[in-house]
Design a protein around this nucleic acid. Structure first.
Lengths: 340, 340
DNA sequence: GCTGGCACTCGACTGTAGCGAGTGCCAGTC
DNA sequence: GACTGGCACTCGCTACAGTCGAGTGCCAGC
């Protein structure tokens, strides 16, 4: 059955009121607060239809209605208008992000900013190594058989690994290797390095091969294959806003899910270009997050995507507002990265 | 009034039972579970004295007794014996920490391990820059007027900063500066760098001075003065164990406090050598942590201290067990750092 | 197709009563 | 003097009954 315009308006009103008051909303209150132009009885009929279709439900007889996940989905897809940011918010964003000294700083400031503006849990993924290129590779000698490999990515991300050499290697050998590796890898995408490194192994002098083999295995194993993706989160205290009524009863499952980097990456890391993604309840595909919703988007310099960011909160959240904020923050961060 | 041995035994029994059951403990249950050799009535008299002295209190008139912060303090200082780790725990610790690829990895594994073993919130501070020495300083050119300063500390910590140069500088100039800086700073403690850098400014060729001035200001301002201390935490989901009965009613203040790096540093960062510190309730000096307790200790290679770690939980926690675990983990981490 | 009216449901709240764990006190005993 | 058994008392917890009211579904009428 198709829903006519008024029924949609009723659904929208229910979602908006419920998000604002956190209480089941009845037909009478609805006509009072929104000028729907019809009587409560009519609204009740519409509600009955909406309930039959699974967009709203009654917590118990003699209570008002509450949106279901399906109801929120419809609301997000068709009923919500984008809410422009307030000037105060814009200013907060700008002020917050200037003065960052390095990538760590940018990421941390961003996640706090997001948590503060949306009053939800915020998550920011570090620029993904999978989407980065090599800017520079440095080999720093620590002892004759031990050195530190430092990789600097174009995204500003820096990774270091300790390398045990099989035999003592002279400083100038190391230096030469460093030069060769940089010639080969600089500017290339990290995912392309395996073949390049393989080629390099053939090109260099035989006596350098064992050292190079160790280096390449560290490089490939710990940086390329096991791509260390990192995420930061902030604002967990926001989960306690509005009692424990959200998240039916216990924060436990939510907090547990937030401890799993893999889960966070799945939710916030896999973002397609220019799409703001909203996942509601079961759509997260995570059992512990049944009662939560996620708004995420990608960011990156010059319209590329190098990582994801977003917020997580109760399904009962201000979707239009959060979507607007997440987008705006992503845009600002992207600009910031483009400047570097 | 001095407490005789039996009264102390009663206090110990109360603490142990209350920690185990999370319920106010009465005189009858006490004599049943612990063989105190006296009747409930006698225990009641002792309890009355303990209450008068402020070691225990009654939640309400017809309930059993609960330890006060002062009671826990006495328990920790005089009544608890160190609980040896189980072999399973020892094995868990060893297994958990092998295979760490770099400092980040060590820190993250450690914090998870601690959270898992103690079932509390765990916190680990990164090796403090204030206590680190410079192992190597690298300058990586990004464009002619921009470079990245990478500092590697002896603790394995790596920090990077973007530097804007006032004028284009040739690669070999940069290289020369890098060598000079390393000659001067390698092996020196970070806190000693300001005077060394100043001296260096006088020694180098005049045309390099402006570049060097920029470098030194970044170095001193963002690494030495504003010492970026970092902390990692895990196990927040453990706060929800045992209902919200701990933390009288709301996790909110606890979660808020845990978001503040400054608070965490204060609790876990300021550790004297070889002392395991226990802070109970108000002793934390943090209002939000009234209902929490902290067990912390220092760690570092070769009996030095480079950072702190520990756990945070309800005042009603297993102090002997947590103290033992925190110490053991700190010892293992220290060994691991000594090997590098 | 909308509306007003009406009977009905059911959770929230209130007040009462009984139960029982636990206490404080006191007189008696070793 | 220290410990013990006994006893009256307190008070939170639970169960139960009764009332209230918000909100619904349905239906006849416009």
């Amino acid at each position: 059955m198709a829903l006519d315009d008024r029924k949609l308006a009723v659904l929208r009103a229910i979602v908006e009121d419920y998000v604002a008051t956190q209480e089941p909303v009845g037909s009478k209150a609805l006509v009072e607060r929104h000028n729907l132009g019809v009587s409560p009885a009519t609204v009740r009929n519409d509600m009955a239809v909406l309930e039959e279709e699974g967009y709203i439900r009654q917590p118990h007889t003699s209570a008002g209605r509450v949106p279901t996940d399906r109801g929120y989905r419809l609301f997000v897809d068709r009923l919500s208008r984008v809410k422009p940011l307030s000037p105060a918010e814009r200013r907060a964003i700008e002020r917050f992000l200037v003065g960052a000294v390095d990538l760590d700083d940018v990421v941390h400031r961003t996640v706090r900013l997001l948590a503060q503006l949306t009053r939800q849990v915020a998550v920011v993924q570090y620029p993904s190594l999978a989407r980065s290129s090599v800017r520079h590779l440095e080999l720093v000698s620590i002892s004759s058989t031990r050195l530190m490999l430092v990789m600097i990515a174009d995204t500003g991300r820096v990774e270091q690994r300790l390398v045990e050499l099989p035999e003592p290697t002279a400083a100038d050998e190391i230096l030469e290797l460093r030069t060769r590796i940089n010639e080969k890898l600089c500017g290339r995408r990290l995912v392309d390095t395996p073949t390049l490194v393989e080629a390099l192994l053939d090109e260099i002098r035989p006596e350098q091969r064992t050292t190079m083999a160790v280096l390449s295995s560290v490089l490939l194993e710990t940086l390329v294959e096991r791509r260390e993706e990192r995420v930061v989160l902030a604002g967990t205290a926001n989960l306690t806003r509005g009692g424990i009524l959200d998240f039916h009863g216990s924060l436990r499952p939510i907090l547990e899910a937030l401890e799993e980097d893999l889960i966070l990456l799945k939710l916030f890391g896999e973002v397609e270009p220019a799409a703001t993604r909203v996942m509601i309840g079961d759509e997260t595909k995570i059992d512990n997050l049944r009662s939560a919703a996620v708004v995420s988007t990608g960011y990156g310099p010059h319209s590329t995507i190098v990582g994801g960011l977003g917020v997580l909160g109760p399904t009962r959240m201000d979707y239009p507002g959060n979507i607007a904020t997440v987008r705006a923050v992503a845009r600002y961060v992207s600009e910031l990265l483009a400047q570097n």
